[in-house]
Design a protein around this nucleic acid. Sequence first.
DNA 1: ACTGTCGTGGGTAACGTTGCCCAAATGTTT
DNA 2: AAACATTTGGGCAACGTTACCCACGACAGT
Lengths: 346, 346
Amino acid sequence: MTRPVQHRRVTIVDVARHAQVSTTAVSKVLRNAYGTSPSMREKVHQAIAELGYRPSAAARGLRGQTYTLGVMVPDIANPFFPEVLDGVTSWLRDTDYQVLLAPGCAGELAEAKTIDSMIDRSMDGIILIAPVSPRAHLEHVAGTIATVIVGRHARSTIFDTVADDDIAGAALVVDHLVSLGHRRIAHIEHLETEPSCIEEMPNMVRAEGYRRAMRRHGLQAEIDVVSRTYTREGGFTGARELLDRPRRPTAIFAGADIAAMGALEAVAQAGLSVPGDISVAGYDNTPFATFSQVSLTSVDQAGRQIGADAARLLLERIADRARRSAQITLSPTLVVRGTTGPPPAG
Amino acid sequence: MTRPVQHRRVTIVDVARHAQVSTTAVSKVLRNAYGTSPSMREKVHQAIAELGYRPSAAARGLRGQTYTLGVMVPDIANPFFPEVLDGVTSWLRDTDYQVLLAPGCAGELAEAKTIDSMIDRSMDGIILIAPVSPRAHLEHVAGTIATVIVGRHARSTIFDTVADDDIAGAALVVDHLVSLGHRRIAHIEHLETEPSCIEEMPNMVRAEGYRRAMRRHGLQAEIDVVSRTYTREGGFTGARELLDRPRRPTAIFAGADIAAMGALEAVAQAGLSVPGDISVAGYDNTPFATFSQVSLTSVDQAGRQIGADAARLLLERIADRARRSAQITLSPTLVVRGTTGPPPAG
DNA sequence: ACTGTCGTGGGTAACGTTGCCCAAATGTTT
DNA sequence: AAACATTTGGGCAACGTTACCCACGACAGT
């Protein structure tokens, strides 16, 4: 039964004393800065190991770096985001940076609070995934802290962006469905309740891509969009509305797998079969879509790659805040599975 | 085109000057400490608002509190954890605390690194979900930082625990299957590669609960456990092994929904129907299980409640580090759905 | 009038780290 | 041999906040 004594934390001063050098020396070794001899490095490293010293991020933060990167995800329950996160962390594996996730940011207000809290904690940089804040606010944030924005189709001089080509992704789905013989193809989009900087958001671009592709195929008269959210609930009610139409669509393209999931439920509940009576496609190619009982046709936007690129850009921007901004656009691919097929005859 | 000037951060000194009071006064108002008159509070609050002041967590951390709580999750892709997290954040909604998530902790080494990084960042407290570290290490951590452990069936004087009664949960599944007429009920368990403090882990307790329930029904001869991991892959290969048995089980109880998902795939791939040829049950009652196309019978362990309890205990422990430790055990319930039914005749 | 007590406010020294500067010793060029 | 460059190490002052003290005036009870 060891007594849980409250030890005072080992500091750089303890290490310096133990290694018989100055605190400056220890600090230099820690940051492998200029002006350290091999023998000194040796002594210091040994002292660090013997005392089990760990630098205080708080004290470092007060002076500058914290070696902490923040990632904001809009919805932790959406299975697409873990994949992006995985890309981020695996890119940072061999660095000194620690990634921390800020969860639960529903709405512009909560998002601003979350971003502020990351700034307050002196993080070295942040990755914002599909933020809903107005453009001007993002610019302001990026002026304060190194920032990479994922998903938004924006171009700024002070932040970098990584996004999927949502126009192309939506076109892949429409092209696929048209080539199967569909004409009445409907879309379930995500609509923010607070309308700010709409046209930059990935969901809006997907809807626009759908419309353009439909027009390209001469199907402008068949364009049919219902506005919900990218959630199971949104997909469910959206699909139900579509199924109640006098001329029911023969295919539903949901802007996200999680919405497609809800749509599939609505279709099943209506007693219709997939893809016999109606085809359903999603977006994101989440693990759920690959599940063989579901086998959802979906657009793959390479979440891991997005995450890795975002991490890389963030490190570059931390190293040089004034460097030219970069915009990376990744090309999506279509993964055809069992939920899409030819429309019913007649 | 606003020029992105690098503003110096607004500090407590600026606020003090602007409000014509001392920094001490501002600090007191911020923490609503003793010794502030209403008029002073008024002045300070106005100055804070006018300057847009935000306290630096780094500086606060150096002195004591950071108002930051850390949550470690073992696997961000497992859909059960978002639910727990949701419970945590909703309980903390109206407090000054910010929750940060530390992702990706596969294995004991990565876990230790993650915990250390939270301690380095002077977090006020941490919630560890199903940690795999040895008992002694957890005690040591809890001696350094306020700690609540979720999932482990442990009892300590210095950390609190919240767990589901996994023995009872496993029994619910076995009882249900037996009442349907099953006898050959197999179990897919999760086995850590690094074997430390095995018997405390929820997965091991579930397996033990399965064994006890089988014995209670006089089915000790039918006990059949395959060891994998709580992943889709683990469930898939585990189920395949079970299906290849000369005397194939009539029911499979996977220790987690995500493993049950893999098991369902293996069953489908073997050309068997659920629940006609074989029944499948899971654990956690994740959103996936509720999906009507899957309709997985599963044990609900009230993730939101677990998270809320953990948050509450953590705040209590932060307020009083010496208080008696608490152990909360929640009773699971069984949600019967479509993947379980009577065994095939003969 | 004299001692306490209370309410109100401020001064100051940390907390642990790092960037800037300077000093001494050593090596290199003219 | 003198002048200069380079390497090696340390002193010191921040960074922004808070806990601990002390000072002052007002007011109550002797």
